[in-house]
Design a protein around this nucleic acid. Structure first.
Length: 586
RNA sequence: GGACCCGUGGUGUAGCGGUUAACAUGUGGCCCUGUCAAGGCCAAGAGCGCGGGUUCGAAUCCCGUCGGGUCCGCCA
């Protein structure tokens, strides 16, 4: 044994004990004849004192530098009252070194472990094994472990079985771009890495494993974002003989209890608020609204049906809408600031931004468009938006999707600027009644919004043939503080309904057979009604950890170009490897 | 594919047409028995991501390129 205790373990009760510690030199305070070393491991920090009387040990301390790995035998003693360190768990004691040896020296590290952050993320990722020594990353990875452990224990208690599914699976052109793995044995053929174990978990339902889950690694070859990595982890789940409400109830209990266990200082409003997809878009411009604050979109369309203002009039005439946000207390914004907001809205697709200011001193409303309005329209707008003196009104007129995108951006921007979102609230919510399909302009066809196995709502079945865009799906998203934290659905278990949907999606029987033949066949052998959900573990842990990127809760993440800076993956391979795989590079 | 931001000793920053390229921290040496971001003294360490251009003169301006980030597209 290299150690008798960890560096976070010793307390007053250990005083007088002889102990052996091993760890890294966190900091060194060299007073000449007396040297203090903070020895660190992942459990904590213990102060070790080297007196020159114990000459051999003292010499080791003298030669040691940051991040040297040391083993120290010593005696635990109380610190003098004035030398107690309240910031350390071990702060009431110290270890008087009797014997010490360097297990391994360290070069000067490119990042300083004892001091948090500040440096370019590039350097942290290149030397991730050093970055991971730091408290922040340890805290995040420990939290992640606790979250996953809680999920496993909870679902085990609920009768779920964790079943592994293959990583090498069949590629299907639906959805995200697949990562492909060439087959050596079958020239010209490829496996795909799973975007999620979707089909496999449904087949497990057919197989009678009526409560399945998996902490599943998923792969999507799409461009990265702060909350998107090419490989990520989902709590993949599926249940038989359930409806939407059963899934929702179970997940709600899971997250309420999880948060109580791992982040007890956070406030979780319950029950989780529920919004329909249509309502979420109408009120917040997003299907994943942050409900920690209001700042809702206000519809002005009906007030302006007869407006002489061309921009509004045309938008309404073309089936669009006019909506706005009332930003409290921002009436003092300058033209330059408003111009910047306009540019910001344009990123969201808006062609422009109409603004109005209700002066704080109660004077006339100033605006970019007031002179174009008809009689009484401005006062109607101010009244509808409940604008108070000192408020800024921002208005977008366009097609509903554009209005929603632009105002959603502005809503989130102002929530940040005005600090409207309480960082210690976890606002889980459900967004329900997603459309089953949406019209794809480019390809001129209907696409599945969720995936092609999602069941339509019974009440909307009659619209399948006549007005498919209006059919709602038995699909639901779990939203947390403005992030999509998970999505799921009740699946189609009847062959005839599946056929109807394939017809709608333009998937011919031949194509269906080639791509999903195994699924269709399986469903002919007694598929139970089933459904599930897949919460995104990285995103949820990110939010629980108060981080703003999922890289901070992953041990070895990739850059925006999907590169691992530490190992330099991806990398070229030997000609011989390519040859074995029957691959010629173009 | 596109927009924007960033790139200066090991690390973090300053410098924004003429500086011996500044500061902090870390690093090396010396001194120091109660520190915990220990302290004091001394020293070394970058030619400014890379390549071109403009200029008498470029870290500073321009063009390109590489790398990192945020976002749009994309993500059933």
């Amino acid at each position: 044994m290299f150690r008798s205790h960890t560096c976070g373990e010793l307390r007053t009760e250990h005083i007088g004990h002889e102990v052996t510690l091993a760890g890294w030199v966190h900091r060194r305070r060299d007073h000449g004849e007396l040297i203090f070393l903070d020895l660190r491991d992942r459990y904590g920090i213990t102060q070790v004192v080297f007196d020159s009387i114990t000459a051999m040990a003292h010499k080791v301390a003298e030669e040691s530098r940051s991040e040297y790995v040391l083993q120290i035998r010593g005696r635990v003693r109380a610190r003098p009252a004035e030398a107690v360190n309240p910031h350390l768990g071990t702060g009431t004691i110290e270890v008087e070194a009797l014997e010490a040896q360097v297990l391994n020296p360290s070069r000067t590290t490119p990042i300083y472990i004892a001091q948090e952050g500040g440096e370019d993320e590039m350097i942290r990722l290149k030397y991730r094994y050093l970055d991971l020594r730091r408290e922040r990353m340890q805290r995040n990875l420990i939290l992640r472990h606790r979250v996953i452990k809680f999920m496993r224990d909870f679902l085990d208690e609920e009768g779920f079985l964790e079943i592994e599914t293959p990583i090498l699976i069949k590629s299907t052109p639906e959805g995200a771009r697949d990562y492909l793995v060439p087959s050596r044995v079958h020239p010209g053929k490829f496996y795909a890495l799973p975007q999620s174990p979707q089909q496999l978990k449904q087949l497990l339902m057919v197989a009678g494993y009526d409560r399945y889950f998996q902490v599943a690694r998923c792969f999507r070859d799409e461009d990265l974002r702060a909350d998107r990595q090419p490989e990520f982890t989902q709590l993949d789940m599926e249940m038989s003989f359930v409806d939407q409400e059963d899934v929702i109830q179970l997940i709600e209990r899971l997250f309420i209890e999880l948060c109580r266990a791992v982040v007890p200082h956070k406030h979780v409003p319950t029950p989780f608020p529920r919004l329909t997809y249509a309502e979420a878009l109408a009120r917040y411009g997003s299907d994943k609204p942050d409900l920690r604050y209001g700042l809702e979109l206000i519809n002005l369309s009906d007030l302006l049906m007869a407006t002489p203002f061309q921009v509004f009039q045309q938008a309404l005439a073309n089936g669009g809408e006019v909506k706005g946000l009332c930003i409290p207390g921002c009436g003092s914004y300058s033209r330059k600031q408003i111009d910047e907001l306009t540019e910001f809205a344009k990123i969201g697709g808006a062609r422009g931004l109409a603004w109005a200011i209700v002066p704080a001193d109660g004077g006339e409303v100033r605006s970019s468009f007031g002179k174009n309005l008809g009689e009484g329209e401005m006062s109607a707008i101010v009244e509808r938006m409940a604008a108070q003196p000192g408020d800024l009104l921002l208005i977008v007129a366009d097609q509903p999707t554009v209005v929603a995108a632009a105002l959603d951006r502005l809503r989130r921007e102002f929530a940040q600027r005005l600090k409207l979102a309480d960082p210690n609230t976890l606002n889980f919510s459900w967004v329900l009644d997603f459309p089953l399909v949406e019209w794809n302009e480019d390809e001129a066809r209907w696409d599945a919004v969720h995936h092609p196995f999602t069941a339509p709502q019974d009440a909307d079945m009659h619209l399948m043939a006549t007005d498919p865009g209006k059919v709602r799906a038995k699909a639901y998203d779990l939203v947390l503080n403005g992030y999509e934290a998970g999505g799921g659905s009740i699946r189609i278990h009847r062959r005839d309904v599946q056929q109807q949907l394939f017809d709608l999606l333009g998937i011919t029987p031949e194509l269906a057979q080639a791509q999903f033949g195994h699924m269709l066949e399986a469903f002919e052998y007694g598929a139970p009604p089933h459904g599930g959900i897949a919460p995104g573990i990285d995103r949820i842990v990110m939010i629980l950890a108060d981080e703003s990127t999922i890289r901070e809760v992953m041990a070895f993440p990739k850059t925006q170009q999907a590169v691992d800076l530490m190992t330099a993956a991806p990398s070229p391979v030997d000609e011989r490897q390519l040859k074995e795989l029957h691959i010629n590079l173009r």
